[in-house]
Design a binder for these strands. Structure first.
Length: 555
RNA sequence: GACCGGUUCGUCUAGGGGUUAGGACACCGCCCUUUCACGGCGGCAACACGGGUUCAAAUCCCGUACCGGUUACCA
């Protein structure tokens, strides 16, 4: 028998972290055993279900790349079947009509009201004392025929117990006395959750139900329905819950965005990294290892690796740096830094695109377009036109600036200190645009503290122009004064180091002062890769122009 | 309240009778370095408590405490 599992969210909000983990575990299990992973939208609560929520959940699943098999089932489409099943149980005497008037919903917190009522009952409540439980068929039929509203309840036997072997928690038993005659059909004819789930799981031929352990007691009720129906229940596996940092419930309302999948997508997380993080929340392969590809997760995922204790999703409210779980952030950074560059490139591309920093020349076949570089160079020099004319020709160290190779080289260089995809368009903006921001703290620390830099860095630009070959003959520049001839050195790391070091000694200052000042001017931030590679990567022209830029000063 | 479940560093976890109780994240320190949120090395830090069983308990049993789930004509 092929394994068939399902993820069955109710569309009452976005896909949150707990549901996402449940979906992932179902997916991994199905793929591991070569079964089917189905999707069912439990939209029977008309009052709370929204299409927008369904879309959001689907978006979340799509982002996590948890593709489902077969058509999506909408539970509300099966309401007639659910009703028919309830009628069948009624006809067989396994359920009864309850003519007790529906209780008015209490105002305030429903959960609390229920809890209070249960506590008031002191556990002495007799679950079988419903006066309509043993109403004669005749009277029941007559009252129903007369149009008297009634709910349909399952007739749970007075003695005995439900039991099932949970794949995570082991044998679970519950005395019938603990379970009330649950309502199958509301008095308005609306099928309720437990009935709907059982009917649909049967209909969908679900073999394994993998869901949160908050359903443990529902499972007993559902087992009761299976028994009444004379159908063998599926195998159950309940998952530990994911808790808030205070070990309390992780709620959409209280914790908001931090639990939503779309937040992570929008914050520049890689689905692969987040999946990896999620997989390790409540499951482990029993190894001292954290990074698993999807294929490895599928290969290693088994139900007995699932834990029984709840896990805390750790984050600190009002702390920008720790807005979400440290490990999730680390995992994402780890993926960005170490995944094959070819796999990262498409993500960087779409990030740059949405930040309007993307250029077609970065594409592998974009080389043919390099002839169009002058047009983009007008952008490069946009903010500095008062300083220099656009150069006639450009000869650069490999890789050629703006080319695909340069793009790959640059991404590989700057990803080393990035945490999210967003960093490519924020911290890394200066590599792709002239229009980048300056971090005030960086300016203060690396520029303002050394007033001499204001002239030194401009001088360094002159030096670059003089020492390195092919420096463009800027109008009015040193180069022009020299007759348009630059030096003879190729603009590469080794030579840049030599030149900068010599310059530093002349000025009697420390290398760090020059380098950090240059970094701030050239990239707007105080952190990044080796400054030598930054110079080289940005290229001679940009380096010179930005060194001469006074933009960052006095900001 | 009742029923059910859980409890190893701050967090995620390994370990399931004999371990210096391991790893990861975070944190701290040192090194590398022009800076740095990269990297390298190191450090801090845990078996909830009390009884048993046993030569030996984090590990098995019982109890307590604490935490969580459920207790709807919600899902």
């Amino acid at each position: 028998m092929t394994v068939r599992v399902r993820f069955a969210p109710s569309p009452t909000g976005y896909l949150h972290i707990g549901s996402a983990r449940t979906a992932l575990f179902n997916y991994l299990y199905a793929r591991h055993v070569g079964g089917k992973f189905l999707l069912r939208i439990e939209d029977t609560d008309l009052a709370r279900s929204t299409e927008e929520s369904t879309r959001s959940i689907l978006d979340g699943l799509a982002w996590l790349e948890l593709g489902h098999d077969e058509e999506i089932v909408f539970q509300s489409d099966n309401a007639d079947k659910h009703r028919a099943t309830a009628k069948k149980l009624l006809a067989e005497g396994k359920a009864y009509r309850d003519f007790t008037p529906k209780a008015e919903p209490s105002d305030g917190n429903v959960k609390d009201a229920i809890k209070d009522r249960a506590r008031a009952a002191q556990g002495e409540k007799n679950m079988r004392d419903n006066p309509y439980r043993d109403l004669s068929n005749e009277e029941s039929d007559a009252r129903a025929a007369a149009g008297e509203p009634c709910a349909i309840r399952l007739k749970v036997a007075a003695t005995g117990k439900t039991s099932f072997e949970d794949q995570v928690y082991g044998l679970q038993e519950r005395d019938y006395a603990e379970t009330e005659d649950l309502v199958l059909l509301r008095s308005d004819g609306h099928p309720l959750y437990n009935l709907a789930v059982v009917c649909d799981d049967i209909e969908m031929a679900i073999t394994h139900v993998i869901r949160g352990q908050d359903h443990l007691t529902n499972t007993h009720k559902q087992v009761l329905i299976y028994e009444a129906l004379g159908i063998a229940p599926p195998t159950f596996a309940h998952l530990p819950l994911i808790m808030a940092p205070n070990k309390g419930k992780l709620s959409k309302r209280k914790h908001g965005e931090v639990v939503s999948m779309t937040t992570y997508r929008d914050a520049g997380f890689l689905a692969a990294a987040f999946r990896n993080f999620l997989a390790l929340l409540g499951w482990s392969a029993g190894e001292e290892r954290e990074i698993y590809s999807l294929e490895e997760l599928i290969a290693k995922f088994t139900l007995d690796g699932i834990h029984r204790s709840n896990a805390v999703f750790n984050f600190t409210e009002n702390d920008a740096r720790k807005w979400t779980d440290d490990k999730a952030q680390w995992m994402n950074a780890e993926y960005i830094r170490t995944m094959p560059i070819g796999e990262l490139l498409p993500f960087v591309k779409s990030e740059l695109k949405s930040a309007k920093l993307w250029r077609e020349e970065y594409d592998p076949d974009g080389r043919a377009l390099t002839s169009s570089i002058p047009s983009t160079e007008s952008q490069i020099f946009e903010r500095t036109t008062d300083m220099a004319e656009r150069p006639e020709n450009i000869a650069l160290d490999i890789p050629e600036i703006g080319s695909h190779d340069w793009y790959v080289h640059t991404v590989a260089l700057i990803r080393q200190r990035f945490f999210t995809l967003k960093d490519f368009s924020s911290q890394g903006r200066a590599y792709f645009s002239e229009d980048y921001d300056f971090d005030p703290a960086a300016i203060e620390k690396n520029l303002n503290k050394f007033p001499d830099l204001k002239t030194w860095l401009a001088e360094l630009a002159d030096r670059f122009e003089a020492e390195f070959q092919s420096s463009p003959p800027y109008e009015g520049g040193v180069d022009a004064a020299l007759g348009g001839r630059g030096g003879s050195l190729p603009f590469n790391e080794a030579n840049i180091e030599t030149v900068v070091k010599a310059f530093t000694e002349e000025k009697g200052t420390k290398l760090g002062v020059i380098m950090n000042g240059a970094r701030t001017l050239l990239t707007g931030v105080a952190v990044g890769p080796s400054m030598l590679s930054v110079f080289e990567t940005l290229g001679q022209e940009k380096s010179i122009l930005r060194l001469r830029s006074q933009f960052a000063w006095n900001t």
